[in-house]
């Protein structure tokens, strides 16, 4: 270790603080704007201190919504986004871990072909295959439904690769010990592999939840009904109203609200995977 000097940490700290300020200031600004009067924001006289309309604005945002553009309270959008992000995260993890289990632990015909097929889905995100995917979703009557929102995004088992790599580091002897202990494939998966993957699952969950939460293009295509729109779409719609004055406090409140669930997920899951990392199993 480098010897600690009194002011030695000053410069790194300074840089860190500047970085934090750069990231945090817009967020702060959004929060401040969400607590002020629309007129003040619109004519550029917004104060840099929070105003006194916090409860009013957030109540309106969550339960009433904007008067014109989105026609749905943000509460509904939050719910939709939450369902979508959750379903994508859980669905992807479930599919990936099972397919990785099959690929690593079972010998079947075309195993490598299957692996490569899955691998190739990495190169085909929704954006690339959007037309055929939309066509299929439409043909299957999935428009304006939660299944339509989530299934096409779940179906690429990209996390398979990660689980596969992890499973390959699990010593073979654990499987062998399980076999001797009378655990079949299901028990081995449930009692040994799943608990050992806890850390990986937590980390993946965070990534996938945020991935799902931030989806824009797909929900934009697949949903037309107001009560099915996600928060990302909602924000966008609030701003694009051309004739009416944009309700900036509501927009900002929505933005702030849209940030909270991913943050919450990170905070909750972080505990889990930091603990997992600290007590690394040998």
């Amino acid at each position: 270790m480098v010897e600690r000097r009194r002011f030695g940490n000053l410069i790194p700290h300074l840089i860190l603080w500047v970085g934090i300020a750069l990231v945090a200031f817009p967020v702060y600004l959004a929060f401040v704007a969400s607590t002020q009067d629309n007129a003040a924001i619109a004519n550029g006289q917004m104060s840099l201190l929070p105003g006194d309309l916090f409860f009013e604005t957030y109540y309106k945002t969550l339960f009433v919504g904007t008067s014109g553009s989105t026609r749905e309270p943000v509460g509904t959008m939050l719910f939709n986004s939450f369902v979508m992000a959750m379903a994508i995260a859980v669905g992807k993890i479930a599919i990936s871990i099972l397919s990785a289990y099959a690929i690593v632990y079972f010998r079947f015909r075309f195993r490598m072909a299957v692996f490569w097929l899955i691998f190739i889905t990495l190169m085909l995100p929704v954006e690339v295959r959007i037309y055929p995917t939309y066509k299929i979703a439409a043909d299957l009557n999935l428009l304006d439904s939660y299944s339509g929102l989530t299934l096409p995004l779940i179906a690429s088992a990209t996390a398979t690769l990660l689980f596969r790599q992890f499973f390959m580091t699990v010593p073979d002897e654990l499987l062998e010990a399980s076999r001797i202990d009378g655990a079949g494939p299901v028990r081995f998966f449930k009692d040994t592999l799943l608990p050992l993957s806890r850390t990986n699952i937590a980390a993946l969950f965070v990534i996938l939840f945020i991935y799902g939460w931030n989806q824009y293009l797909w929900p934009l295509l697949i949903t037309t009904r107001d009560d099915m729109q996600t928060i990302q779409i909602g924000i966008r719609k609030m701003i694009t109203t051309s004739d009416a004055l944009t309700e900036w406090p509501v927009v900002m409140a929505t933005a702030v609200l849209a940030m909270l669930p991913p943050v919450a997920v990170v905070v909750v899951m972080q505990k889990l995977f930091v603990r997992g990392l600290v007590e690394t199993e040998k």
Partner: peptide, 20 residues
């Protein structure tokens, strides 16, 4: 016969204890 049904017990070089 499956290992579990052979009525044997094995001690591995790296012990293979279930870490969790």
């Amino acid at each position: 016969v499956e290992p579990a049904a052979r009525d044997i017990a094995m001690v591995f070089q790296n012990y293979a204890l279930y870490p969790h």
